[in-house]
Design a protein around this nucleic acid. Structure first.
Lengths: 238, 238
DNA sequence: CGCGGCTTTGATGTTCATCAAGTAAAGTGG
DNA sequence: CCACTTTACTTGATGAACATCAAAGCCGCG
C-alpha cells in the first residue's frame, strides 16, 4: 500500500476494487497483485428494481456479489407458489450459498431495489482460493455465516404464529436492513407472504391489526413502527 | 503412496486415516504428510444411541465428523419445543455448518444410532486449510453442499401439508438413509414431529392412515413401504 | 380510459394443534 | 423379578389458526 513501484500504484489508483468495501470483508486476505488481477477481470452490472439477475436452472459462471442495493433469493416451488429464501443487502454473502456445490442455480436472484453487483468468474475465484489460502479461509467463514443466517431465520420463523412472523419481519427490516423504525417497504405484501410462508391476505390483515392496535403506522409502502416494545413482544412470544 | 521411506510407510500402515473413507470425500486433496499429521492429532469417540455429542452453547473446539452411525442436529427453540435441523449419516458434512462462523454451537448434536465420530481441532483444520488450498476448496464444496441440503429440505417440507410431509420423510429414510423400503425407524414419532414441524399426535395419526390405506406396514419401529408410487404421489403433490 | 396487478375487507371452510384419556413398552429401584 | 414410574404410542373430540373464496377499491401504465 506504500512501498510499491510507481506505475503499479498508478494503475491501482484507477482500480476501485482496491478500496471497495466488499474487499474489506470477503477479500480482506487478498494479496495486492491478486487485487490487480481481480480488478481487470471483474465485471460490474446494474439492475433496476424488479429486474431478474439470475434464474433458477441457469449455469453458474460467476460469483455475484451485491455492492449496493437489495436482492431476493427465491425459488419457484410450484407453478403458482414462490418461496423467498432470503432478502439480502450489500456486504452479505448469501450469493456464496450454492456456487461451490451446484452446476446450475437452484434459486433465482432478483433486485428488489436498484442494485449494483460485481461479478468474477468461478475460475477466477477458484484460482484465488488456490493461490491464497487465507482468502480461502475467509470464504469459508463468510459462507458459513451466510448459511447460518438463512437456516436460523427459517427455524425462527417456523416457530411463530402469523402475528409473530409479521412482527419479526417488520423488525428485521427496521433493525437489520434500514436501521430505522421508519422505512419504505422494498417488497410487496405478496412478497412478504412468500418470505414468511403465509398468504397475502393474512399479511395485509395482520398489518391492519397492528395499525388498529397502534403498533405501526402504514402509508402504502411506508412503515413506521411506533411501539417497538410491543412489536418485540409479539415477535418473540408468538 | 509408493515411493516413500520405509519407516514412513510402516508408520502409515498403522494409520487408519489413510484409508478412511471419509478421507476420500472431504480429505481427497490432502497431502501424505498432512494425513500423517491428521492421524496423530485426531481423536476418536463412540456414542451410544441417545447420547448427546455436543450441546448448544458449548464452545466449538473441533470439527466432528461422523464415521459411522446417525446423528441429529437440533435446537431448543422454546422450553417445550425442539426443532430438528437435520438428520445426517456418515460421510455427510452437516458438521461443517457453523464451525467457521460461530464461537459456540448454535445447535446440539446427538446420536440417534450408535455412532463413531472422529474429531480434529479447529486449529488443526485451519492449519490444513492454510497449508493446502486444494483441501480448502474441497471444504468449500462440502460446506456448500451441506448448507444446500438443509435449506432445500426446509423449503420442500414447508410447502407440504401434513400427509405430504410424512410421505416425504418416510421416503427420505428409504431412499437416502437405508436404501431399502423396509427399515427400522431410528427416531421416535416425537422426533419425526420435531423434524417436519408438526405434532406427535398427527404424525401417528397420519402414519395410521397410511397403514389403513395399505401404503405402508407398521410394526413398532419397523416400517415397510408397500406402495411407493402412491407415497411418491402424496409426497410431491400435497 | 380500461386493463391488470396490488391492496383491502369480509365470510366460509379446511387443516391442524390442543386437550383428554387410555394402552403399551421400557426403564428403575427394592 | 415384580411393583412402580416414566416415556412412547394411539385414538377421538373440540376449537383455533389459517387458507381459500369472493368482491370491491386503488393505482400505474399502455
Amino acid at each position: 500500500m506504500n512501498n510499491e513501484a510507481d506505475n503499479t500504484i498508478e494503475t491501482r489508483a484507477r482500480c476501485e476494487c482496491k478500496d471497495c468495501i466488499i474487499r474489506a470483508l470477503i477479500f480482506e486476505h487478498i494479496h495486492s497483485d491478486q487485487v490487480f488481477d481481480l480488478c481487470r477481470n471483474k465485471r460490474e452490472a446494474f439492475y433496476k428494481k424488479g429486474e431478474v439477475i439470475v434464474s433458477e436452472g441457469m449455469e453458474i459462471h460467476d460469483l455475484i456479489y451485491v455492492r449496493e442495493g437489495l436482492v431476493k433469493y427465491y425459488k419457484q416451488v410450484s407453478p403458482i407458489k414462490t418461496q423467498i429464501i432470503s432478502i439480502s443487502r450489500a456486504y452479505e454473502f448469501t450469493s456464496l450459498l450454492s456456487i461451490f456445490s451446484e452446476k446450475q442455480y437452484i434459486h433465482s436472484i432478483a433486485a428488489i431495489e436498484d442494485t449494483r453487483v460485481c461479478m468474477i468468474t468461478l475460475e477466477q475465484l477458484k484460482k484465488m482460493v488456490l493461490e491464497n489460502s487465507r482468502f480461502a479461509l475467509g470464504l469459508l467463514e463468510k459462507m458459513s455465516k451466510a448459511a447460518d443466517n438463512v437456516i436460523q431465520t427459517f427455524t425462527t420463523i417456523n416457530q411463530k404464529h402469523l402475528r409473530g412472523r409479521i412482527a419479526f419481519i417488520l423488525l428485521h427490516f427496521a433493525n437489520e436492513i434500514y436501521k430505522s423504525e421508519t422505512y419504505n417497504l422494498p417488497v410487496s405484501r405478496k412478497e412478504i407472504a412468500e418470505l414468511i410462508g403465509m398468504t397475502t391476505e393474512n399479511v395485509i390483515r395482520i398489518m391492519s391489526e397492528f395499525r388498529k392496535e397502534k403498533i405501526i403506522r402504514i402509508n402504502g409502502k411506508q412503515i413506521e413502527i411506533t411501539d417497538i416494545p410491543r412489536l418485540n413482544l409479539i415477535s418473540t412470544h408468538g
